[in-house]
Design a binder for these strands. Structure first.
Lengths: 124, 124
DNA sequence: TTCGGTGCTAACAAATTTGTAAGTAATGGG
DNA sequence: CCCATTACTTACAAATTTGTTAGCACCGAA
């Protein structure tokens, strides 16, 4: 998110992992702290920067910007700037990320199901 | 992976995000650097610690241990220790993570498809 | 008695991600 | 001129993750 050192072991490892594994590659694209939450909010249509912020009260403006920028760079959201003052910018899912919606649903279901089990195990 | 500060903003944010979003919760479970790669290797059956290591040449023993421990704690892999010398330990997917296999496949396909597009865009 | 094989752990260092606080630009309205 | 609004940016600090190196325990074989 800040720039990364081109040839740290860390970076090299990430590259070789994602290059060798489509699954890891895919999950990396949605793997920032707030990314999936943002994407979920966009599932029902365009939203302005400020609207997303209101929907995710704990996020800071900086984080929201960073995550949106990466999502944009990776082609998961489309950003539209209107030449107005005060500025207006909106964000929406791209075609590419819309393809993920059914998968997200399955993952969500899996999460819901097993979160319950785990809570059950803990409280039991 | 080391212990985390119970009440850093960071930790609090993670908690509230994963509690509020099943999707984020689910993806967090598989979100360590090497986790999906490990899980993929286990897709075809049990493997010993050393076997996994051989299949993932760049991983350090420490990282492999850490990732396996978290996967175990989260119920995604089952660890079996045999009382032998030298020690023998093997790892396999749990029922819970086997449910994810078809989802991983879809994600993989999505990854493969869009990785190509992106490469095309870059080279064009 | 030393050595090899296996699956780790500990102490430390480096890299990366995340969070905080304080700005900035542009312009129309008062 | 001064202010409010919106979507950011910048500089910094804290937290977390990842990587490096060395070592440990066990027992049987040589």
């Amino acid at each position: 998110m800040g720039k990364r050192k081109e040839s740290s072991t860390n970076m090299v490892n990430e590259k070789c992992i994602t290059e060798g594994c489509d699954l890891t590659y895919a999950v990396c694209k949605m793997g920032g702290r707030w990314k999936l939450l943002i994407l979920c909010k966009l599932e029902h249509g365009k939203l302005r920067f400020g609207e997303i912020k209101k929907l995710i009260p704990n996020i800071s403006e900086r984080m929201l910007t960073l995550q949106l920028r990466e999502l944009e760079k990776d082609g998961l959201v489309k950003r539209t700037v209107y030449a107005e003052v005060p500025p207006r910018v909106d964000y929406e899912l791209s075609t590419m990320s819309k393809e993920l919606i059914p998968i997200w649903l399955q993952l969500s279901n899996w999460g819901a199901k097993h979160r319950q089990n785990q809570e059950y195990q803990i409280s039991a």
